[in-house]
Design a protein around this nucleic acid. Structure first.
Length: 590
RNA sequence: GACUCCGUAGCUCAGCAGGAUAGAGCAUCGGUUUCCUAAACCGGAGGUCGCAGGUUCGAAUCCUGCCGGGGUCGCCA
C-alpha cells in the first residue's frame, strides 16, 4: 500500500525547502488549510515564528519564501499578507492531479499508519440485568467508531464488550430472586442438580428486580451484608448461584445482541468481569508476596498515591474484607488476561468520564504490579447525556428512555418522513423499512458522535431524530443522490473521465476531498470521532454546492460531463468511507 | 474542602499545541424547482467568546484570581 501525499504535504515540502535554502528549519514550512478561504487555499505561519526567533522582519522572510514558491507547479498564486502570513492558492493542475489520485484509490487518498499496533478497545459499561438505555448509547457508538477507525488506519484491534457481570449487583439480584421465588433449587445448598435449563426470570423481570434490589441494598444494612455474602459465595463457586447467574447473563445477552444488531455494532469478544476470575487468585498471591498488596482494615489494597499528586489518590481495593473481588480487582485480572492472550500495545477503555479516577487508580496499579505500563492504558471518557434541565436525561413520563424505544421512535419518524415526501413508493415494504432504519440509525449515531467525546451534552429527542441540517440523514442524502446519479449515468452509457478543475464549486470539492487525511489523523490521534463527523459533513456540503452549480448528465460538453461524473464518484467513495468509519450504512435510495 | 470538566449567536454546539473579518446547524427574514432526489441550494440578520487582571507584535485559545454549572473523592460499579 502506498501512502499518498496530500496537498498540504506537497506544499509543506516546497515551503520547507524554501526555508531550508535560507538556512532555516524546514519544519517552518508547514502548510495548513487556510483560515481565510476567501484569500487562500493554504497558509503558512512559519515566517512569523522564524522572525520571532531571529529578531528579523517577518514580512521579509515571508517574501523570500513566496518568491521561491512562485516557481512551484503546485502554486497558482501566492503572496504575503498581514504581519507575515504566506498565502497560497493551489493550481488547477495540482488540484486535478490530486483529484485523479483520490478517485483512483479505494482508500480515497487516506494514509495508514506505518507501524500497526495491537490495540484493545474495552466498551465496559453495560451491566447484566440492565437493559440498554439512552445512557449506554455513547460507549457503544463511540467505541464502535473507534474500532472501525483504528482498523482502517492499520492497527490490529480486539474489541471487548466487557460486561459488568461479577460485582455486588449479582449478589443483590440473587437475593431478590430468592425473595420472590424461595423454592427454586438454586438456593438449596444441598441440591445436587441438574438445575433447570430455562431461566426463572425474563429480561423484564431483571429490569424490575434490579432497581428494587439495589434500593434495598442501599438503605438496609442487613440486606447489604447478605448481598455481599451472596456475591462472595457466587465468586467462590457455589453451584446454585453459578447456575442462576448464568441465566442472568444469558437472558441479558440476548437483549444486548438485539440492540447491537440493530445498531450494526460488533464485538470480537463478549467477555465480562467474570472472565478475569481465573487470573485473580494467582495475581493476588503474587502481589501479596511482592509486598505490593497490603492488608488494611481487613482488605487487601494497593497504594497508588504519589508524592507529586495534587489530589487525594485513594488505594485500590484488590480484595474486600469479605474476600470478594470488586471492580478494581477484576479490571486488573482482565489486564493480566489481555497481556497473556493479546499482548496489546495500547488498551482503550471507552467508559463514562465519571470513572476517570477509577481508571487512573487501576492504571497506576497495573504499572506498579508490572502488568501493562501506565502509558499503554487510556481511559477515553465521555460526557453524560443530559436532559434540557442539565440533569441526566429522563423521558416526559420521568422514566429512562430505553434504547430500543429510541430506535423505534426514530424508525417511525423516518418512515413518516418518506411517506410525506412520497419517496419509496416504488419499493417493497421490507426495503422501505430497511431504508427508514438506516436513516434512523444514521440520525442517532451522527448526533451522538458529532459532540465532542469528553463533554456532557443535552439530549433533545426531536433534534436527535430530526432529518434536516447537520444530521446523519443529510449525509445519507448526499450519498444517495450520487448513487442515483451513477445509476442514470450507467443507463445512459456515460463514463467517468479525466478530471479537470474549472469551477469554484469543483475547487472547493477537491480541497475538501483532500482534507480527509487531516480529519483521520485528528480523529485517530485524539480518539475523537466528531472530527471525522465534521469532515463528512463538510464533504457532503461541498458536494451539494457542486451538485447544484455544476450540471453533470445534462452538461453538453462530454469532457466536462465525464470529469464531473468522476468527481462525483470520488466523492461517493470518500463519503461512504467516512460514514462507514462512524458506523453508518448508506442505503441505495431514500 | 480538594481535584477535575464546562461557561462562545435566541437554542444546540464547533473552534482552544496563540495568528488575519470567531464558524456551523436549528429558529428567524428573503430568494431558488418546465433541468441529475427541494431530506437540497443561494443570500440577510444575529456574538464586548462568564468577569477581571497578566504574558505577547498578536489571546476565544496560554497563566492567575473570581463568579456560575456538572462530576469525582477506599471496601457500589
Amino acid at each position: 500500500m502506498t501512502n499518498q501525499t496530500d496537498l498540504a504535504d506537497q506544499l509543506s515540502e516546497a515551503a520547507g525547502a524554501a526555508f531550508a535554502a535560507l538556512g532555516l528549519e524546514s519544519s517552518l514550512g508547514a502548510m495548513r488549510r487556510s483560515d481565510r478561504p476567501d484569500l487562500a487555499d493554504f497558509q503558512c505561519n512559519g515566517a512569523m515564528a522564524a522572525a520571532k526567533k531571529l529578531g528579523r522582519n517577518p514580512r521579509e522572510i515571508a517574501t523570500a519564501i513566496v518568491d521561491a514558491l512562485k516557481a512551484s507547479p503546485l502554486v497558482a498564486s501566492t503572496d504575503v499578507a498581514g504581519p507575515g502570513f504566506i498565502n497560497v492558492k493551489v493550481s488547477a493542475a495540482a488540484l486535478s492531479a490530486r483529484a485523479a489520485k483520490i478517485a483512483a484509490d479505494p482508500r480515497s487518498g487516506a494514509r495508514s499508519m506505518e507501524t500497526p499496533r495491537r490495540v484493545v478497545i474495552d466498551f465496559g459499561g453495560w451491566n447484566v440485568a440492565k437493559e440498554m438505555h439512552i445512557g449506554h448509547l455513547r460507549s457503544t457508538v463511540i467505541g464502535d467508531s473507534l474500532q472501525r477507525l483504528f482498523r482502517f488506519m492499520g492497527d490490529t484491534v480486539t474489541s471487548d464488550v466487557h460486561l459488568g457481570d461479577w460485582g455486588l449487583q449479582m449478589g443483590q439480584l440473587i437475593n431478590e430472586v430468592k425473595l420472590e421465588q424461595p423454592d427454586l433449587p438454586y438456593f438449596d445448598a444441598v441440591f445436587t442438580g441438574p438445575y433447570p435449563e430455562t431461566s426463572p426470570v425474563t429480561m423484564d423481570d431483571l429490569g424490575r428486580l434490579y432497581p428494587q434490589a439495589s434500593a434495598k441494598s442501599k438503605t438496609d444494612e442487613t440486606r447489604r451484608d447478605e448481598d455481599r455474602k451472596a456475591t462472595q459465595e457466587l465468586q467462590a463457586g457455589r453451584p446454585g448461584y453459578r447456575a442462576l447467574w448464568h441465566h442472568f447473563c444469558n437472558v441479558t445477552r440476548v437483549g444486548l445482541e438485539r440492540e447491537c444488531a440493530s445498531l450494526g455494532v460488533n464485538f470480537d469478544l463478549w467477555k465480562g468481569e467474570s472472565d478475569a476470575e481465573p487470573y485473580v487468585p494467582e495475581l493476588v498471591e503474587d502481589l501479596k508476596a511482592r509486598g505490593i498488596a497490603e492488608l488494611d482494615a481487613g482488605a487487601w489494597i494497593i497504594r497508588v498515591a504519589r508524592e507529586t499528586d495534587k489530589k487525594e489518590m485513594p488505594p485500590i481495593i484488590l480484595v474486600n474484607r469479605d474476600g470478594a473481588i470488586g471492580y478494581h480487582g477484576s479490571d486488573l485480572g482482565t489486564i493480566v488476561d489481555r497481556k497473556r492472550t493479546i499482548a496489546p500495545e495500547l488498551s482503550m477503555y471507552v467508559v463514562d468520564q465519571r470513572q476517570a479516577l477509577h481508571f487512573e487508580q487501576v492504571f497506576r496499579a497495573s504499572d506498579r504490579a508490572g502488568l501493562l505500563p501506565e502509558k499503554a492504558l487510556e481511559h477515553l471518557g465521555f460526557g453524560t447525556v443530559n436532559g434540557p434541565d442539565g440533569k441526566p436525561f429522563k423521558t416526559r413520563e420521568g422514566g429512562i428512555l430505553k434504547l430500543y424505544e429510541l430506535i423505534s421512535q426514530a424508525d417511525a419518524t423516518a418512515l413518516a418522513r418518506m411517506r410525506e415526501a412520497e419517496l419509496g413508493a416504488d419499493v417493497s415494504d421490507d426495503e422501505r423499512r430497511d431504508i427508514a432504519h438506516k436513516v434512523a440509525v444514521a440520525a442517532i449515531k451522527f448526533s451522538d458522535l458529532s459532540n465532542v467525546r469528553t463533554t456532557n451534552y443535552i439530549f433533545d429527542l426531536d433534534r436527535f431524530i430530526s432529518f434536516e441540517g447537520k444530521t446523519g440523514p443529510y449525509l445519507l442524502y448526499a450519498a444517495v443522490r450520487i448513487k442515483s446519479l451513477a445509476r442514470r449515468a450507467e443507463g445512459e452509457g456515460v463514463k467517468p473521465g479525466p478530471i479537470a478543475i474549472e469551477l469554484d464549486a469543483e475547487r472547493g470539492l477537491v480541497l475538501q476531498l483532500d482534507a480527509l487525511n487531516d480529519a483521520l489523523r485528528g480523529s485517530y490521534d485524539k480518539r475523537m470521532p466528531h472530527i471525522l463527523c465534521d469532515h463528512a459533513y463538510s464533504l457532503a456540503q461541498a458536494f451539494s454546492s457542486f451538485y447544484t452549480a455544476a450540471p453533470i448528465l445534462v452538461e453538453s460538453d462530454p469532457a466536462k460531463k465525464a470529469s464531473r461524473l468522476a468527481l462525483a464518484m470520488a466523492t461517493l467513495t470518500q463519503l461512504e468511507l467516512a460514514l462507514h468509519l462512524i458506523g453508518i450504512d448508506t442505503p441505495e435510495r431514500m
